[in-house]
């Protein structure tokens, strides 16, 4: 019998701890598939951030360094400077990357560090119990914006991909979603492309993935999934914002 579906080699057999309907699991799988595709498992180093994805090391069969909250891009930069023939990626939430870790990601991007960043934007702080994130949409209720995010007090949801795409340094900046089979396919392609660029030494690749948090959105998995198309994508449009195929020299 022909096998048509199996667990990627870059994943362990450990069942995910994620809540039902959470997209973190899908994103994990897409990353593992990309590593498998280029046979990178044995030369990859993952940098885990602090958030619901902190247990990266339980699910990926690769070497992992756990980073302090927000600092994953700097940790990855340090690792990659030493092991420049290895593949180094970070996996960070929106609180981690777009609030406390803004400086680290901007400068890694601006230096064009040859690393890959998977940025999971679920418009909320998942792990700490649903507080407002910099990506929380206007009017969205969270435990620390109980009356809804107010642009006058809290500012506007931050568009990381657009910000990073404005820099000269990055080679690939893209935003994807995994709310429909079609979008999963596109996300798979872009994540694969991000790792391919690193393999080819083309520099900094950044993939923002719009993601659900049914638990802290107070929604069923189905409703949370629907919210991606109805509310998230209109504000955070999908697509590749920047792609550089030639490496700059001096």
């Amino acid at each position: 019998m022909k096998q048509v579906f199996k667990r990627p080699e870059s994943m362990t057999a450990k069942p995910f701890h994620f809540c039902p309907g959470c997209h973190h699991g899908i994103v994990h799988r897409l990353v593992a598939e990309a590593l498998d595709h280029f046979s990178l498992r044995e030369k990859t180093i993952g940098v885990a951030s602090v958030g619901c994805s902190v247990f990266l090391y339980d699910y990926f069969a690769v070497d992992v360094i756990e980073s302090p909250h927000g600092r994953a891009a700097a940790v990855a930069a340090g690792t990659k400077r030493v092991l420049n023939d290895r593949i180094v990626f970070t996996y960070q939430g929106d609180g981690d990357l777009a609030a406390i870790g803004t400086a680290e990601v901007i400068h890694a991007a601006n230096r064009g560090d040859n690393i890959t960043i998977i940025f999971v934007n679920n418009s909320i702080y998942g792990m700490t119990g649903g507080q407002m994130a910099p990506t929380t949409l206007l009017g969205q209720r969270s435990t620390t914006s109980p009356y809804g995010r107010d642009c006058n007090r809290d500012g506007y949801p931050i568009k990381m991909a657009e910000m990073l795409a404005a820099l000269e340094g990055p080679s690939l900046v893209s935003r994807v979603a995994v709310n429909t089979p079609g979008n999963v396919k596109k996300a798979r392609k872009v994540i694969r492309q991000a790792f391919q660029m690193q393999v080819e030494g083309k520099g900094f690749s950044f993939v923002e993935v719009l993601s659900t948090c049914p638990t802290n959105w107070g929604m069923t998995p189905q409703a949370a999934n629907d919210r991606i198309a109805e509310e998230m994508i209109p504000y955070f449009p999908l697509g590749t914002l920047k792609q550089k195929d030639v490496v700059d020299v001096l």
């Binding site: 600092r71 700097a74 340090g78 030493v82």
Partner: peptide, 10 residues
């Protein structure tokens, strides 16, 4: 902050 975290990675 970045220096010490780069140090962790290295």
């Amino acid at each position: 902050i970045a220096s010490i975290n780069m140090l962790i990675g290295a």
